[in-house]
Design a protein around this nucleic acid. Structure first.
Lengths: 202, 202
DNA sequence: TTTAAAAGTAAGTAATCAATTACTATCTTT
DNA sequence: AAAGATAGTAATTGATTACTTACTTTTAAA
């Protein structure tokens, strides 16, 4: 059954909307994306969006759910396939880097949400996403310390923070360079330095 | 000569404006700060701002100049006082951490500017600031590699990126925690992990 | 085939915000 | 003390934006 572009069923339309917003966020400041711009990207009039979302904040919230689901499952899959704690950390790092290289708008939206003063639903979603992420990392790091892969003196908290910060650093440099591929090209080099900071010496 | 709050001379008023904006950015999304909010923070009417700045973008631009000047001079001072390359890196790291802990609005404004699609003057200022910063780091790292403090196999580019990324990570976590002091409390721990990643082994 | 629900359009509305304007108060200089 | 320059006020303007409403088209089920 061929599906025409217009008159999509509601759920499909919501998915398309999320994808449009993620796409747009790769090109411009997420805060400046108007509902008109989203609609235009989808080949729709602005008012039509409000058939599927009660307000603009709800669109963002749906984006956050989309991101959380996709990212966490990718990370988990990467970690599970790895034979050791260090290998799992590396796989997660590269999977995360690949994800943000594919969707450069995502980290920009996330950071934009974190900046909000108000405690919006989508801000809370970002907070729990990063918290879950951090917990997963800490478990892996502890495991690595126990089995001798990682330096036993390592401060787990700092190591987890540095892991996420490294991705942040890659994202920022790619913003500076205006080049999403920057992340792909530099991810493994950055992880190598990070890794040598946490690995058991000698 | 006691100075009344109102009718400040132009240059002083501009300085106060910059400080007001930096203050406000610590409390709310920099993108959402209105000229009315800035004026209100200064005990001024909104229109008065336009006696001293041609438009809102010019205020931001002045903020960026303020930040560049203050931050780079602090970093340079920290680096010069240190007896070795590693000590200089640590001093810079801690000076930077202290700066953003004192002015939590600053990294938020910077990141917000980087997100802009348009090539505004203030965005360019951020780009050159970070570029200068990166160059300074790379020189120090090369120096450390030459004199045997740092691992000679180290990739200088990645190491510099990870340095700045670590600060970013601290900033992000402090946003998550809603606590500016988070940075002060965790800076040296994070640097320790970073440092062990770049230091010459054994 | 008819019909009702779902999805989309086009034209608004109210609110917000940067910037302007006409006027006033306050400094500074002679 | 007078007067010009500087700094500030209060009200307004035009543009933008999220959201609404009245109406139309498409889809799918009876």
């Amino acid at each position: 059954m061929k599906r025409s572009a217009k008159h999509l069923p509601a759920e499909e339309r919501r998915t398309v909307t999320v994808e449009a917003l993620v796409e747009l966020a790769a090109e411009q400041n997420p805060n400046d994306i108007t509902t008109a711009a989203i609609a235009h990207r989808m080949g729709l009039t602005q008012g039509a969006l409000f058939r599927h979302f009660p307000n603009k904040a709800a669109i963002l919230q749906t984006v956050m759910e989309w991101v959380t689901q996709r990212l966490l499952s990718k990370l988990e899959k990467a970690a599970l396939a790895a034979p050791s704690a260090i290998a799992a950390l590396e796989a997660m790092f590269l999977a995360h880097a690949e994800f943000v290289a594919e969707h450069p708008g995502v980290p920009r939206i996330l950071f934009g949400e974190l900046q909000r003063a108000e405690k919006t639903a989508s801000k809370r979603l970002v907070q729990t996403l990063i918290k879950q992420y951090g917990e997963r990392l800490k478990r892996l790091i502890e495991e690595g310390k126990k089995n001798g892969e990682l330096n036993a003196q390592l401060d787990t908290e700092s190591a987890a923070l540095l892991f996420i910060g490294s991705i942040q650093g890659l994202v920022m440099q790619s913003l500076l360079a205006g080049d999403a591929d920057f992340i792909r090209h530099n991810a493994s080099g950055v992880f190598a330095v990070y890794c040598s900071g946490i690995r058991r010496k000698q």
